[in-house]
Design a protein around this nucleic acid. Structure first.
Length: 637
DNA sequence: CCCGAGGTCGCCCTCTGCTGGTGATTA
DNA sequence: ATAATCACCAGCAGAGGGCGACCTCGGG
């Protein structure tokens, strides 16, 4: 038997494949016959051409199955059946073969060679119960029924593709349930009797009442109004559900936990998420599976690269609405997340959480680099560290001091450190050797006689800038006070550190535990004192409490900073960058930062005691000498 | 007509990881 | 003194989970 049927554009064209999988089938217009189902469908891929499948004649059936044009297609599909009818495919129509896993393969119109045909991939969602889907989506989906090795039902949503010509919009559902074949048969049989089709969306119904009710969905008729918010609904059930959202009534309880929901569907979904972990919608490209089809659609965009949500201000486009909304904050400047501790604002909640974790939380676990033991606060920064320091680079890196080469940056740095204490720079004119290049440059001036630094006040010239600076201060600056190194035992002061040290070795007046005082003549700089941020605040205050404990730092009044770092800060990686002052244990340092400005009215005055440039601290009022222990005990102030 | 099942859209959340500016440290 | 280095940090985007609300349809 042969019969032609003009197909509506939603209809799939099928070819038979073998005799084993025979089922009853009818196209929507009522043609019914026995046929074999194979995995072929016709899809209009050209967005500029209206669906034109109506031009394709379906050739149904006989014992060997059905066949359709073009001629070579039969060979491509390996069918032995006789060609019953032949018609050319219209322009813009492509034929796809759908594989057992849902993959789509286009069959070239001219070559009709399956081996060279373009292969396309789309998502496949597997659901154990898709009868409802088959029923519901008839109006908008193309059915491709494949009863091959696994009795799959493949349903392609070709509506978007037909309208927009984009394969990315295609979704495929695949049902493994063999019972679906029987169920479909049932549906088809009913179709044969009589169907009622919607004129607006081509949906067909087995009963008139169904169509009548369906037609209401095409109208804006909403007779059931909420008395609380004026919102209107089509049915009383919908209204009741809506009112439940007002009242908080949640009649559908989860049997596995205490949660309750307004609708039963929410319970089902909730149980899948939280208890059964059933994920019916599976991606055919990767292992992803989801509870909801919308999540799979969103996921598939990460494969296709599709970004349907463009920003109106810049070139950014998002894969979903939420990311676009979040992105828009970068234009609006909105920072909706506020730290409850320091009131800092953030654009994203995650950023705020990380801030709180790092700034306001104790005992935050750190991340240890497995290669070098570095301790890093954030996992993402550990990733940066690993990439930068421990990743293999194909091009080798050469040591700057020798011929050794390395492919890992960390190894190179470690190796270069072994050169640290070598006197790598050797003078070619004498035996002098040094560690630093700049020292060698200065040394070579001895041989060349070069003295590039000249005094602007006199005709003296120097090989080093610091020599010139010292000369200038000593001879041309009237307010110059030389540095003083004070013996921690007897408080005698010396202008040279090595002289003081020699003296201290012999000095027997042990008054303070190995404390040295150095009056610094450093010019004040804003960031001279490398204090921790918190201590900086304290140092700005008017009150300068003098602490009794020698182990702790002492910040004296009005800019006279006395620092006693008997316990130098422990250098951990975490605190490394916040290290306070790097100083030898036992040093008591007097920094004369603001001291010069306030020296005239400060109770402590520096006086020159002897002509040998020894200095001493005295109280300007009592004229008593200030000893280190007096300072430490706060008595000097 | 009602109800249940399932579908759809949208919103918000978390987790993750990359990026570039910054300051402390080092060479 | 200076440049280089690197951990710290906030900003920002990618991906996915979970749920609220509403809609449609099949079937009793």
């Amino acid at each position: 038997m042969m019969e032609s049927e003009i197909l509506p554009h939603e209809t799939t064209v099928f070819l038979t494949k073998s005799e084993e999988d025979i089922m009853e089938y009818s196209v929507e217009r009522g043609v019914s016959d026995k046929m074999h189902i194979i995995t072929l469908q016709v899809v209009n891929m050209d967005e500029h051409i209206q669906p034109s499948l109506t031009e394709v004649n379906l050739v149904t059936m006989h014992q060997q199955g059905i066949e359709m044009i073009p001629t070579g297609l039969r060979q491509a599909l390996g069918s032995e059946s006789e060609i019953m009818h032949t018609l050319p495919l219209p322009e813009g129509v492509q034929i796809f073969k759908v594989g057992p896993n849902g993959e789509m393969q286009s069959i070239e119109r001219v070559e009709l060679d399956a081996a060279t045909a373009e292969a396309g991939h789309i998502g496949t969602m597997v659901d154990q119960d898709h009868g409802h889907l088959a029923k519901k989506e008839r109006s908008s989906l193309q059915y491709n029924i494949q009863t091959g090795t696994n009795s799959d039902l493949t349903i392609c949503d070709c509506r978007d593709r037909q309208l927009e010509g984009r394969r990315a919009d295609v979704t495929v559902e695949k049902c493994i349930d063999p019972a679906i074949t029987t169920r479909l048969n049932k549906i088809k049989k009913k179709d044969i009797r009589k169907t009622f089709q919607c004129k607006l969306c081509s949906y067909t119904f087995p009963q008139r009442s169904n169509l009548d009710r369906h037609m209401r969905s095409h109208t804006d008729e909403r007779p059931h109004k909420c008395h609380l918010c004026e919102k209107a609904f089509r049915t009383i059930t919908l209204l009741q559900n809506h009112i439940n959202t007002h009242t908080g009534t949640r009649p559908h309880k989860c049997p596995d936990c205490a949660m309750a929901f307004v609708t039963s569907g929410e319970v089902v979904r909730h149980r899948r998420y939280k208890h059964t972990h059933e994920k019916p919608f599976k991606c055919s490209i990767c292992d992803y599976a989801s509870v909801e089809v919308s999540k799979l659609k969103r996921h598939i965009r990460s494969h296709t690269g599709e970004r349907p949500f463009p920003c109106t201000f810049c070139s950014y486009a998002s894969r979903d609405t939420y990311k676009l909304k979040r992105h828009m904050r970068t234009h609006s400047g909105e920072k909706p997340y506020k730290c409850h501790v320091c009131q800092a604002n953030f654009t994203q909640s995650g950023t705020m959480k990380m801030h709180i974790r790092q700034k306001h939380t104790d005992n935050v676990p750190k991340y240890h680099c497995p290669h070098c033991g570095a301790i890093i606060a954030r996992k993402s920064d550990l990733g940066v560290h690993l990439r930068k320091q421990h990743s293999y680079t194909s091009s080798s890196m050469k040591c700057r001091y020798c011929e050794a080469t390395f492919h890992e940056r960390y190894a190179l740095i470690q190796h270069q450190k072994t050169h640290r204490h070598e006197k790598r720079f050797k003078c070619d004119q004498c035996d002098y050797a040094c560690k630093q290049k700049r020292h060698m440059i200065m040394h070579k001036r001895i041989h060349t006689g070069e003295k590039p630094f000249s005094c602007p006040q006199c005709d003296k010239r120097f090989r080093q800038k610091q020599l010139l600076d010292f000369h200038f201060k000593k001879h041309h600056n009237p307010s110059f006070i030389p540095e003083a190194y004070v013996c921690s035992r007897c408080c005698k002061s010396f202008t040279r550190k090595n002289v003081m040290k020699k003296h201290a070795e012999k000095c027997e007046n042990i008054t303070v535990q190995d404390v040295n005082i150095k009056i610094m003549m450093k010019k004040r700089k804003d960031k001279t004192m490398k204090l921790e941020p918190k201590k900086k605040v304290e140092a700005k205050g008017e009150e300068f409490p003098v602490q009794q404990k020698t182990e702790q730092s002492i910040e004296t009044a009005k800019g006279l900073h006395i620092k006693n770092d008997i316990t130098s800060p422990t250098k951990t990686n975490a605190t490394k960058r916040k290290k306070v002052v790097k100083r030898k244990p036992g040093d008591l340092k007097l920094e004369r930062q603001e001291f010069a400005g306030s020296i005239s009215n400060h109770p402590i005055q520096i006086i020159r005691v002897e002509s040998n440039k020894e200095l001493a601290l005295v109280n300007s009022q009592s004229k008593e000498e200030i000893t280190p222990e007096m300072i430490l005990n706060g008595m000097a102030l």
